[in-house]
């Protein structure tokens, strides 16, 4: 429980039938960090969450949480793992009070009833309103409130922004960030809305189909990854290079994304027959960096 690595996945491979999702994937999440898993649809984000939460046996490889294999985790360790299922799924047949009464006895000594009801007061719904009759945003707050009340060491959140309007997304992100920073909690999350991630996460893993493209602190990523543009002669076709991501030519201008410095990009372009004197580099936000590294399609 006191190791610096909270989540450790080594050599993960998984396939659905003949379709391989990824092969030999390894990553780890240090204690007290908020890590966002970014990837396009179908890159296996939910598959990783399912493996981590013990609801999927990977074809190969091993995942540990707090040093224990997730497939053989003693049930009491689940007290320290808060799980948010995609779509903020909760027991729809319960109301706000009932669901709190239901969960509280499972977490003796750590349940923070006040944290839950503080968030519920913001919803302005009757305490006896059933969760099934709430909006998606309200349901997300109930799910978050329950996780905050559980007060776990690790939070695993699958696509927390799904179906939320900007106001609820902001509320969710701000609450989660304040909580995780104040309590030094470790968070592993996925989301489709990358602007939200930028406000929230310390580190990111960017996944492409079947592999991890990048795993590093967001600050370092945004410091390194740049968009580069320059004029190119008519009929120019870019030569593929491992460090130049998704080069495209439109109306005589080359556009690409790369994590390597300006000088090295210029050298590579010169070797490709391009005059790099006009080469310009532009800083990117997380969403643009993600699109630049993974491509638009």
């Amino acid at each position: 429980m006191h190791s610096d690595i909270v989540i450790d996945c080594q050599h993960l491979s998984h396939s659905y039938g003949k379709r391989q999702i990824y092969n030999d994937l390894s990553f780890s999440v240090p204690r007290g960090r908020i890590l966002g898993l970014l990837g396009k649809n179908g890159t296996g984000k939910t598959t990783i969450i399912n493996i981590l939460s013990g609801y999927l046996a990977p074809s190969a490889g091993r995942c540990t949480i707090f040093g224990t294999d997730v497939r053989h985790m003693p049930h009491h360790m689940r007290r320290q793992i808060g799980l948010l299922i995609e779509g903020h799924v909760q027991y729809q047949f319960m109301n706000i009070e009932q669901i709190e009464h239901f969960y509280a006895p499972f977490f003796p000594g750590q349940w923070r009833r006040d944290a839950y009801y503080e968030l519920m007061r913001k919803l302005r719904v009757a305490p006896r309103q059933r969760i099934s009759r709430m909006s998606c945003g309200q349901r997300s707050q109930v799910a978050l409130g329950l996780i905050l009340a559980q007060n776990p060491e690790l939070l695993v959140l699958d696509d927390f922004s799904l179906g939320l309007d900007p106001g609820y997304r902001r509320l969710f992100v701000d609450y989660l960030r304040e909580y995780a920073r104040a309590e030094q909690r470790t968070v592993f999350l996925t989301s489709h809305i990358i602007q939200d991630m930028e406000r929230l996460i310390d580190d990111c893993i960017i996944m492409d189909y079947g592999r991890i493209l990048v795993q590093q602190p967001v600050g370092v990523l945004l410091e390194q990854v740049r968009q580069y543009t320059c004029s190119v002669p008519e009929g120019y076709s870019p030569t593929p290079h491992q460090q130049l991501y998704h080069p495209t030519v439109s109306h005589g201008r080359l556009e690409l994304t790369s994590p390597i410095p300006h000088q090295q990009v210029a050298q590579l372009l010169r070797a490709d027959g391009i005059n790099p004197d006009e080469l310009q580099s532009h800083p990117l936000n997380l969403e643009d960096a993600f699109i630049g590294l993974t491509g638009k399609y």
């Binding site: 009491h76 799980l83 299922i85 779509g87 799924v89 027991y91 729809q92 499972f106």
Partner: peptide
């Protein structure tokens, strides 16, 4: 059926209690 709706059973099986 409410447990299987949107795989709510995951919540039940995630409780810190023997499955």
């Amino acid at each position: 059926m409410p447990e299987m709706h949107r795989k709510c059973l995951k919540l039940t099986l995630h409780l810190p209690c023997s499955r």
